[in-house]
Design a protein around this nucleic acid. Structure first.
Lengths: 237, 237
DNA sequence: CAAAAACCGGAGATGGTGCCTCGACTTCTT
DNA sequence: AAGAAGTCGAGGCACCATCTCCGGTTTTTG
């Protein structure tokens, strides 16, 4: 349960500048993987942090190790969210709230989306936290079903599917209208009710033709020359 | 409107074997791009057709030209579907039927999905056919809204979003359960009704934990060594 | 039937990418 | 001040997709 916060401390306490750089790398990794997904290069991360590639590879043996290190805490955060949602007064509200919050997190971080929905990244530690969440989510949904508010034919594995679907909407439109995913999720949640219940008011207006065209241009562009040179945040030269 | 079926006939009537191979290429392209998406290589297409790469490049100047050639007719087919849906008796049924049919087409052909939802492939011809569809779809949806069955706050540009979302579900699960997308689409369509209307019975059972795990393993796998050696259909050696 | 024209094949040229290493140099710690 | 720890980034390596080239084959023509 309680995990050591600094298991590396036993070996030797990194030199001061090294420790600082380590943190910079983690920060940059979050920013870069968040925006460009896990396909981003460690070279990109290094450049974003204003460091050399070698420095990154000295601290993290491989890309996977870096990814693992940065996402474990974020995953735990989501698990906590589920626990929290279980203690909501109204079961439906608890469930819906959980979905909104998690998708909100996903919407801002492409790397997180990929970690959560794929087993192709991260090591056993990531898998561990994910496994921990399954019973929580199951109970969360069963509770909402027993109260007669969530449709009874939904199963826990539908949740990753919903994340996947909304995630696709995010990826498709985020360049044009970063919050359009709310509209999509609202639509889906309306289909999840067991009780009739009037259609919810959609939280975001639809796109016009020009906007959807723009989205279609950005999607699946074979290669982007250099999306943007990430700024190099540095303090003292 | 009426397009020449064989505009190339004016130049010179390809040699017999060349014409045969041309058709083989088109067939193979459909199969390969359908399964692996537009990222597949012309080398793959050639190999699948049992031909050399050079042969393919002799017939089609570039990948884009080949893609254009194979999808124009399929796109027209979808436009026809829309026209057809407009003459359905019940506006809601017409709309829903159209969505089911188009997603059905998308579900079996990854290349088609990518062509339909991205402007990054194909030339002006593809764009032309797509533009032709916009007013049809608009009317189709307005008709269903005026009859009070489709929720009034939906707009035509929501349709590509729905395709995108279900398409993501297809891509995620098709290796595990090729028809699971029906479940997802049914869920979404339930959220599109204006009238309360009891929740529809889902047309496909949900996944179990092992299946979703399998889907998560297959998704975003960095590199696939050789997914499968496509069989080489040949007649006479 | 033979010559000419059209076509085929597939190795490899070309240009690109990503992961990671290495050795000369710099900074921190004691 | 010495030596341990850390940094840098060019470049090695391995991979990949697009498209070309030309000796050899098949079809058509006269």
């Amino acid at each position: 349960m309680t995990r050591d916060a600094a298991p590396a401390a036993s070996a030797r306490p990194l030199r001061r500048d090294a420790e600082l750089n380590r943190r910079r790398i983690l920060e940059s990794a979050r920013a870069v993987f968040g925006k460009r997904g896990l396909e981003a290069t460690l070279d990109d991360v290094a450049h974003h942090a204003g460091l050399g590639v070698g420095t990154v590879y000295r601290r993290f043996p491989s890309k996977e190790h870096l990814v693992e290190a940065m996402f474990v805490e974020q995953l735990q955060e989501i698990a906590d969210l589920a626990e929290q949602a279980l203690s909501a007064e109204d079961p439906w509200d608890g469930f819906v709230d959980f979905v909104w919050r998690t998708v909100e997190l996903h919407s801002g971080d492409r790397g997180l989306r990929e970690i959560m929905l794929s087993k192709a990244f991260g090591h056993e530690h990531v898998a561990e936290v994910k496994a921990h969440m399954v019973p929580l989510i199951t109970r969360l949904m069963e509770r909402a079903q027993e109260s007669g508010q969530l449709r009874a034919d939904l199963v826990p594995t539908d949740l990753p599917l919903i994340h996947q679907m909304v995630g696709a909407a995010v990826e498709y439109t985020s360049a044009v209208e970063p919050h359009l995913w709310r509209r999509c999720l609202a639509l889906i949640l309306d289909g999840l009710r067991a009780e009739p219940g009037r259609a919810t008011e959609l939280p975001h207006p639809g796109l016009d033709q020009a906007e959807i065209d723009q989205a279609m241009c950005a999607w699946r562009q074979p290669r982007h020359p250099h999306p943007a040179t990430p700024p190099i945040p540095r303090e003292k030269p």
